[in-house]
Design a binder for these strands. Structure first.
Lengths: 122, 122
DNA sequence: CGGCATCCGGACCGATACTG
DNA sequence: CAGTATCGGTCCGGATGCCG
């Protein structure tokens, strides 16, 4: 569509906006954090993250697989084993996502304090 | 103060998880993009982003103000004028958010292609 | 101009139970 | 172990209309 080669999130019609939103959903950053050191199994991701139900985790993983960010490998064994790993594309997202995560951890205190101050002023 | 860095997104109870989620909501990255070059008025942000209703934009801006990421300055004039700007804390988030935005713009094509391929396989 | 009030639909999320 | 099925709730986000 665009004669230009680039996507622009400031354009309401640009697909990059949809992509950007996906990256910001509730569990995506946490899944990436779990997978950043290599292949992990479903149960491992689940316990890494904690407090996520199987259904929602499956949904998240399926979406990421569909978007080409992770791979899903099934081993036909008993008991079944399924392993997840970042694709090359997914790995390239690790840096950006990590930057946001680190900011959140580093500044959560300040945000919370600001929130309290704001609420007290009401 | 905690001797350790206290906050860890992989801990379900950690407040940083809430903060991380806020950063990923639908309009936050776009507001930051609009404010990155300096102070802007409500209408300017609105037209920068496009396709966002006043109500939702107001909600987003209030939340960001409450979290200490932007300032809101009202000028008692007729017609009224309200200006928004990033705080120091907000500015420190500009880099991380920009990294994700750039990734989205650079790789949206690949994500879309992967999505199509995945859907065709069904 | 920059909101706020109201209503509303649907996406997202979760608890629980069950299965190959 | 790694999901699927079902049901239900919340809440985000949008449309519309009014106000100082």
């Amino acid at each position: 569509m665009d004669s230009m080669d680039g996507f622009d999130v400031m354009n309401p019609q640009c697909p990059s906006r949809v992509v950007l939103q996906r990256l910001g959903d509730k569990w995506t950053p946490l899944v990436f954090q779990s997978l950043k050191d290599g292949t992990r199994r479903f149960g491992e991701i689940r316990s890494d993250i904690g407090a996520v139900t199987p259904k929602v985790l499956t949904q998240t993983l399926r979406t990421l697989e569909r978007d080409g960010l992770i791979t899903r490998t099934i081993y036909p064994e008993v008991p079944p084993r399924v392993e997840y790993a970042l694709t090359r594309l997914g790995s390239s997202l690790l840096g950006p996502l990590d930057a946001v995560r680190e900011w959140a951890e580093a500044n959560a205190g300040e945000v919370l304090a600001s929130r309290d101050a704001f609420d007290d002023a009401l």
